[in-house]
Amino acid sequence: MTNTENKIITLNNASIGYQQKGNTSKVVKSGISLHALQGELVAVIGENGVGKSTLLKTIAGFQPPVSGDVLIGEKQVNRYPEKDLALMMSFVSTEIIRVPNLSVFDLVSLGRYPHTNWFGKLLDEDRHIIEEAIKAVGLQGYENRMVNHISDGERQKVMIARSLAQDTAVIVLDEPTAFLDLSNKYGIVHILHQLAGEKGKTILFSTHDLTTAIAESDRVWLMLHDSVEQGAPEDLILNGNFDNLFHNNHLFFDQEKGDFRIRKQTRRKAVVTGAGIKRDWTVKALERIGFEVVDETHLHRNESMISIEPADSRWVLKYLEHSAVFDSLHSVCRYLNNLR
């Protein structure tokens, strides 16, 4: 990385937290040094309560940092007059907006707030920008729909269109996919990825969804309990930083799959013969119910062996001298659970 690249957001040894009575402050996290470059999609990942929201609120200028530097461009975020900051950075919150009788067009047009005159009059140029923003999130034709009559996923896209209409270099989103189903989660993060790449915006979003974050972000800010790490998601996986995300012994980070898995106590061992996708899913099913799947050669001589052979449309199970045939993995699992 070279220093000539354009840092849009810079945190330099910053402490974040809340002002309390009598000039004291409660520090949520300190010693934060992070940055984001122009055109990057940045995912903020961390356990609940680690300070993601506080960090985003501090960067968005809703609360001042307790100490240290939080720079947007080259200026401290809390030194910006409100209007100048609104021309530089827009914000999308977790809250679901349900205003009756507010059309998609009118909601997106609120994004033009810092650009229009005292009465908020829209010029032709403003209308054009609003239409473009609606198109960018794939909602053309929705202009006159009421925002409380569309789905949660569509509403979140409308909120993103509103922040696009604000036409800022930076967009900050607090858990934009929190209430959405899987397909909408992918949809939203993919839109953010495109906006960062094609329009050169720096987009910062917090999320709990590792799979989409790893697949689409250019940079991850990983908020751990004792430190904050940043880098490409793949770098953080390779250097083992993801392992420290949760203070939970039952979870471990699967570096191959790029996601967390629940550590299960394995009670027994089993051998699965065969190959291909049918074997893979048979292994998964056995792991789910607490078996460790091993090679035949790893078994000790005195251990009783369960061997499963996936065949065309059935599973042949051998255990000691017993043998049984099943027509689904569900019945295999039922049988093995009862063997305990």
Binding site: A60, G61, F62, E82, K83, D84, L85, A86, L87, M89, S90, F91, S93, E95, I97, V99, L102, L107, L110, G111, Y113, P114, Q166
Partner: peptide, 13 residues
């Protein structure tokens, strides 16, 4: 209409 956080982020005093 969008609440005070949004209003502020759009540059309203």
């Amino acid at each position: 209409l969008l609440g005070e956080n949004y209003a502020r982020s759009m540059g309203m005093n």
